[in-house]
């Protein structure tokens, strides 16, 4: 019997196409031994949530650089809840001013990583917070 493989999804909700960070993270997660679902740019929250559930991921990492995170991130959490999938952890990244952090945490985003966050710190966070889920 082997150990649970961590499965994550990297998603870009909204209209911005700045996917440099998202694509780097997808590769980084692969190199950390995770299975990564990458869905490209311009996703609606509905598409993100449907894919997350079909793929049974442990975690959804949202990336948004357009300023629409205040609306889009909480929407993803809400939709997961509606679909009875609140056990899927949602984290976020992108250009997110610190003053928005609390609002996003309150909405159910578990962690926020902004420019300059090291890849290792993100991988470590996932390993610490995702292990043990079944």
């Amino acid at each position: 019997m082997s150990a649970r493989k961590i499965r994550v999804m990297v998603a870009k909700p909204g209209l911005d196409g700045h996917d440099r960070g998202a694509r780097i993270l997808a590769r980084c997660f692969r190199d950390a031994g995770f299975e990564v679902i990458y869905t490209g740019c311009h996703q609606t929250p509905e598409q993100v949530v449907a894919a997350a559930i079909q793929e049974d991921v442990d975690l959804v990492g949202l990336s948004c650089l357009s300023g629409a995170h205040r609306v889009l991130f909480p929407r993803v959490v809400d939709l997961l809840r509606e679909k009875n999938a609140s056990d899927i952890t949602v984290i976020g990244g992108g250009i997110i001013p610190e003053q928005d952090f609390q609002m996003l945490y309150d909405a159910g985003i578990k962690a926020i990583f902004t420019p300059g966050a090291s890849l290792d710190s993100i991988v470590d966070w996932i390993r610490t917070n995702i292990q043990g889920r079944d």
Partner: peptide, 10 residues
């Protein structure tokens, strides 16, 4: 790494 990027569903 044993990891994978699964991109077909895009």
């Amino acid at each position: 790494s044993g990891g994978a990027i699964l991109g077909d569903r895009v």
